[in-house]
């Protein structure tokens, strides 16, 4: 039972170099503190045991949302509510706004950051699926420099990522979305707010002459990591969108999911939900690609 926080030293480096050096030095005794909405709970409940926190609060521009050439760059420290309220994001990838608004509660979204939502690598996180179908990359700053990783390759398991000791996730880069493309995120939870996904499905389709040129489908909460349903997406290529087609793809997506049974739902029910959400996400993505308003 966790009424109390353990004694913890908080560091507030003023730049990334300092942050990386500190993290490298402290190693396993430190965690990065951003919004803290996951981490503080884990510390109180003794699931995370560290004696140092390295806060990103003082680092200039860590929360900046800006155009980067044709891409959109979202600072890791940007909160879900800031992203949801940003007009560039709304034009660039409206489904990301939907995903942000589906997270937790308004109060939590005031604190919770996109970087935290990704780096915590919780299988049910709401932002990774839509970012994965949008071909997003994360930028990691380490003691020896920067590197970029495709988000779909970033997750290694529940709460495990590709991040190395001393690295900080600094920003998310979303490439320009193809013309005539549309994306969507559908989440199913047991309550309309403050609920983790039983399953979440993101989809992106790119249209050409009435046919689906390319598609991507990512599944959340139904595998150890957010996961691309590649065979389901492949089944859509060069096909005319129809309910039957989406149902076929959804059935394939179910076979690509690896859900577990837990307190939020049985594996069997999760497979049912993946099927429904995949079809609905595809319908919405196609509607958006055709410039139609969402239902």
């Amino acid at each position: 039972m966790g009424l109390t926080l353990p004694e913890i030293e908080i560091h507030e480096p003023e730049n990334l170099k300092e942050a990386c050096a500190l993290l490298k030095k402290l190693g396993r005794n430190a965690r990065i503190l951003a919004g803290g909405t996951d981490l503080i709970v884990d510390l109180k409940e003794k699931r995370a045991k560290v004696s140092h926190l390295v806060s990103l609060a003082e680092i200039v521009d860590i929360d900046r949302i800006k155009k980067d050439g044709k891409a959109l760059s979202i600072g890791a420290g940007a909160t879900a509510n800031r992203i949801a309220a940003n007009s560039m994001v709304a034009r660039f990838l409206p489904a990301l706004v939907d995903a942000c608004n589906s997270m937790a509660s308004y109060h939590i979204r005031n604190l919770a950051t996109i970087g935290g939502n990704i780096a915590s690598a919780v299988p049910s996180a709401d932002l990774p699926p839509i970012l994965i179908v949008a071909d997003a990359k994360v930028e990691l700053q380490g003691p020896r420099g920067k590197r970029k990783v495709k988000l779909e390759n970033f997750f290694k398991g529940p709460r495990r990522t590709d991040m190395k000791p001393g690295e900080v996730l600094t920003r998310i880069i979303i490439p320009a979305q193809p013309k005539k493309s549309g994306s969507s995120y559908h989440k199913f939870a047991l309550r309309n707010a403050t609920a983790l996904a039983v399953a979440g499905v993101a989809a992106r389709v790119e249209m050409e002459k009435g046919l689906i040129k390319k598609a991507a489908i990512a599944l959340g909460a139904v595998a150890p990591t957010p996961k691309l349903a590649k065979r389901a997406a492949a089944a859509l290529r060069k096909k005319k969108p129809s309910r039957e087609l989406f149902e076929k793809a959804a059935a394939i997506a179910v076979r690509e999911s690896k859900p577990i049974s837990d307190i939020r739902g049985s594996a069997e029910y999760r497979r049912d939900i993946v099927e429904v959400l995949t079809r609905r996400a595809l319908e919405d993505a196609v509607a958006r690609a055709r410039g139609k308003k969402r239902k």
């Binding site: 309550r191 309309n192 707010a193 307190i263």
Partner: peptide, 16 residues
């Protein structure tokens, strides 16, 4: 008890 917290024990909220 598997859900001794207000995340997994679901009270209805305003939006419900």
């Amino acid at each position: 008890l598997l859900n001794p917290n207000l995340l997994d024990y679901k009270l209805v909220m305003a939006r419900d």
